[in-house]
Every structure is written in C-alpha cells, then in structure tokens.
Nucleic acid binder design. Structure first.
Ligand SMILES: [Mn+2]
Ligand SMILES: [Mn+2]
Ligand SMILES: [Mn+2]
Ligand SMILES: [Mn+2]
Lengths: 219, 219
DNA sequence: ATTATTATTTAGACAAATCTAAATAATAAA
DNA sequence: TTTATTATTTAGATTTGTCTAAATAATAAT
C-alpha cells in the first residue's frame, strides 16, 4: 500500500495513542498531530478506504493488522535515524526527534536495513524506546515503571516517555539520560515531588510532571 | 525563504539546465521533471512571486541570486547523501540518485554540516560531481572533456553526466567507474563509436550515445 | 427526564500541485 | 510574407490535505 507522508504521520500517531485495544479518539489524535478534529475525520475515511484502520462514526479509530504493520515500519525508520544522528553525527538526544520526523518518510527497505546494519542493529533508540526489527517484531520491553511510582531506592533510567524539547532540555541540564543511575532520597506527598540524587552530585527535587515521564527499573 | 519539496525540485532542475546565462525553456524543464509544460508555467509564476527566478512570458526562466543560493544548498545536500550511501552504507553509485532525491529535502543546516564532517568533508560525489561547501562555493572543476571528443590517448574517468539507471548499470557491467583509466584504441567515423581498453581487459566498443556522457581528463 | 456540555461529523471553502484541452504566441517553412 | 509547426500560456478540473462554521450525536449535569 502506498502511503503519503500525511497518512504515515497519522498511522504513527494512532499507533502511539492506541495502548492495547482501546480505540483512539478523534480529539486525541487531532491534539497529537496538532491539527483539527474535522481534519482527522476526513483522514479517517481515507485510511479506512485503504484498509489501514477500523473506523465507524463516533466509535474512534483502531489500527488494522495492515496499519499496524505499516506503523511498525515507520517507527523502525524513525528510531534508526535517531540512533544514526546520536551515534554517528553526535547530536544530543533531545535534538533528534524533529529530524527523524522527516527522515522516517524516506521509504526504502534496502536503505533502512543497511542503516540498521551500519549502526550494529541496535534494539533501542536514544530515548530508550525499542526498535522493531525488519519483520516488525518489537523486543519485549524489560519491566519498568515511571519514576513517580517506583518503590525501589536505587534505580536506572531506561526511557523517557515525553519527547518534547522542553522536557529533554530539562533532563539534559540536570544530567539525566538513559542509563543514569539515581537514588530516591525522599518523596513529598504534598505535590508528589521527589528528591533524587545522581552519583557525585547534590540532591535535586523533581516535580511529578517530570517524574511520571521518566521510566526506571530497579538496579 | 520557505520552499516546498516541489519548489526545491524545480529550482534544482533549473540550476541543472541553466548553463551560464541561457534561459531555461518551459518544455525542457517539463521534460527534465517528467511533468507537463502547463505545470511548469504555473510553478514559474509561483517561483517568480517568491523571487527565486526571473521569468517573463515566453522568455524562459533564469535563477535569481536567491534561487541560485537555494539550488546550491539542495545540490549540496543531494551529493552529500550520495556520498553517505556509497561510502558508509555500501550502495553502488547507480543506486543512490533516487534515494538522494528524497533525502535532499530534509532541510537542516546542522544536519548537513555534521554529515559533511562525518564523511570527511568530501568535495566530489560518487558520480564525480563537485559538492558545494556550506557557503555554496563550488570547487573549480578540473578541465575535462566528454570521451567522444577527447584527443589524448590515455584518460581517466572523472564524471558521468547522465545519472539514468540504465546508463549507470551499463557502465557498471563494463567495469567503468570514477577513476577508471582507459586507452582509446580506435575511433569509427561512421557512427562515432569508439574502441577503448581498460587495464587487464579486452577492448570494447562504445556508442557515441554513451561516450558523450563519460567525462574524462588526460592522464 | 430534560437540559447543558462536550465530542464528532458534515458542509463548504481554500491552497498546492498537478492535469487536459483549447487558445495564443513565436518560430520555421514554403 | 503568408502559412504551417512548435512552444507556451490560459481556462477549467482534479486530488490531497487542510480549515471554519454549523449541525448532530454522545455524554454529563441538574
Ligand atoms: Mn513524520
Ligand atoms: Mn525516539
Ligand atoms: Mn528531490
Ligand atoms: Mn550525483
């Protein structure tokens, strides 16, 4: 199936928003894509015609098997380009998302498979997200929780679930990146902020807004 | 100035067709871009509004200084990606043009400058064409002639002026690439074909159609 | 069970990029 | 210098992706 850039972006966003089987809402998709609900309805009809999604009026959107396959290809391309930018061109992880957002639309299996090989067939991208293989299979993610709900003391950062430039810049400033080890010092119930300490650094306090986007696993 | 992908493709083709100052013709541009003359006229008006070209009805098209600058940026991106594909991802030179045709439209100075650095700031692409630097300056091309007009005997291949897949596949089959040294054995006036010999290989005969697209310089 | 609010869809419009068919201009031939 | 041919432009349509404003459906509040 031949998909336009716009269609690919929709499919990727649907994939992102569709946790499990719950249908994606018109408004949620419009917000995610920074467009208007009316535009989403228009596109939903097109994508249904192309058999990429299931869609009934007022019932929300779900990816079809075809659509899911397409989404995984796009995600694969996106994350491999992010790896390339960080590993080979020395970009920092908060800069790469926008560029990958464009590079992901160059459709060539040969290109992307060679790129993967060139990068050593990585299985996670610079934000800790898993990279689908050439067949669309995702490595089973290791068990992780968000930092605001972690119960262990000593933790390692495994992923960041919000790729907004502002959050990533914040984390960068604080020295928090993938693989960073940290210790929870205190948890303040009042605003659910937590105090953490990185190695060789003074303790810092982090808001719930931030900590819920930092994924960790016990060390 | 913000240019669409279509506009960039037009500008690059105008640059390619405009040797010196001779205006580019509507039909030539349509043929080059595999589109219709009416579409070219439409786009000419848009590009004139954007001050990228000079255009008067029936008078043909010339790049403005602005347009030339844009063209050189696009050409730079195109050729650097071609280098990347050949040098790092082991593509062969006849495969890379199509892919670069898409990659060239990812607009990021930072990306392209880092890519250039990563590649060792190359000054010619895999087809022997010069790569503009970050300021749009082109290395002065070394003196070269097409193979059908060469007068020296011993020559080296410096460029190929037709990137069609069919020609490049032909050259590949014959073992002719950039840097290949060859000797002219004979020149047949009847059809302007020539007989050449590569090192350690039997002589082969090449049509004028081919030889006029092979650029060489005396060895 | 009504009423108000929110979510979603429809209707109609628009810009970008393209096309076909017809009209006009430029150029070459007779 | 007429006439024929070729090149270019215009007029009008189409497709894709988007929008605003209005209509309708679903859901929440009273
Ligand atoms: Mn994208
Ligand atoms: Mn990522
Ligand atoms: Mn292109
Ligand atoms: Mn090239």
């Amino acid at each position: 199936m031949n998909l336009s850039v716009a269609e690919e972006n929709y499919i990727k966003s649907i994939y992102k928003l569709q946790e499990g089987d719950n249908a994606v809402t018109t408004n949620a998709l419009a917000y995610e894509l920074d467009t208007k609900p009316a535009s989403v309805t228009d596109m939903a009809k097109k994508l249904k015609d192309k058999q990429m999604i299931g869609y009934e009026k007022y019932q929300g959107i779900t990816l079809s098997p075809e659509g899911r396959k397409a989404a995984l290809q796009i995600v694969r391309r996106h994350r491999l380009w992010e790896c390339f930018l960080v590993d080979k061109l020395s970009f920092s992880w908060e800069e790469v998302h926008e560029l990958a957002e464009e590079l992901e639309h160059v459709r060539s299996e040969k290109l992307i498979n060679r790129l993967s090989e060139f990068l050593g067939n990585p299985v996670i991208d610079p934000h800790g997200d898993p990279i689908p293989d050439a067949n669309g299979k995702l490595a089973k993610p290791r068990p992780q929780t968000s930092l605001d709900q972690a119960n262990a003391r000593r933790l390692v950062v495994t992923a960041v679930t919000d790729q907004s430039t502002s959050l990533l810049a914040f984390l960068n400033a604080k020295g928090i990146k993938l693989g960073t080890q940290l210790e929870i010092i205190a948890h303040y119930e009042y605003d659910n902020s937590i105090e953490i300490k990185l190695r060789h650094q003074p303790a810092i306090t982090i808001s719930e807004q931030v900590s819920k986007h930092i994924m960790v696993r016990p060390l």
